[in-house]
Amino acid sequence: MKAYLSFLKLRLNVGLQYRFAAIAGILTQFFFGVMYLFIYEAYYRANISIGMEWQALVSYLWLNQIFFYLTYFNLIDGDIYDSIVTGQVSYELVRPLSVYWLWYVKLLAKKIAGAALRFLPVLVVAMLLPSKYALQAPVSVAAFLLFLVTLFLGVILSICIGMIIYGFMFYTTSSRGLFSIYTAIADFLAGGTIPIVFMPPLLQKICYALPFRLTIDLPFRLYVGNISVEEGVVSVVKQVVWIAITMVLGLVLMKHSQKKLVVQGG
């Protein structure tokens, strides 16, 4: 356990060194936040009745940008990816550690370090904007607490799902294609591209049946009051169940794939 903690600490240190990448990221988040606001404003002007109030939508969009680094499904972690493609993974396999947990911690540290550097400036500006375009306070204390819990569990869940994808990486020579497809589909099904309430009914049903929405759609809609506290509590149970399922799947896959391992690059 201590080994994984030390690993987490060192990894956070390294992650926090990339300050310029963070500044670029912050600007990107502003740009996307503002762009989304303008696009949706056009829709709302047309008075099309959709499943979310304007102010709730604004908050949803800003939360998505503020916690982007934490919730986005893009997993191409340079280190892990390169280690498999170049064969550097050899060194991880000669340690008395589980590769699954080692990578789990790597991804977690990366998300935390990245988000820690980015979230505050976006949060502050999102609150200071004219009220029509600003992030609002959460609807209630209970909703806010549930938002924090579901956000945290959502991150854990998204890494569990990601580890399954990493397990598949061992079977392919280069997985950039697999990753791009996964990122796009997962982010869409999670409500990261457009809120799920705006989707056609059939698509909504698919999203609700899958675990992805528990990472983005759930916590942010809880915050804005679009999902009730009661439903939120039930969803926490769903999150825990999905975490258990995906974790077991990932562990099994990782164990199996290591037997078929081919180290590339001599």
Binding site: K2, A3, F7, L10, V14, T86, Q88, Y91, R95, G265
Partner: peptide, 22 residues
């Protein structure tokens, strides 16, 4: 042909990490 040291930190930090790993 490979490296087991962490690229962005001094070797000593890698040593201390290995201490905890082992």
């Amino acid at each position: 042909q490979r490296s087991q040291l962490w690229w962005d930190v001094p070797p000593d930090d890698s040593f201390y990490l290995l201490r905890d790993i082992y």
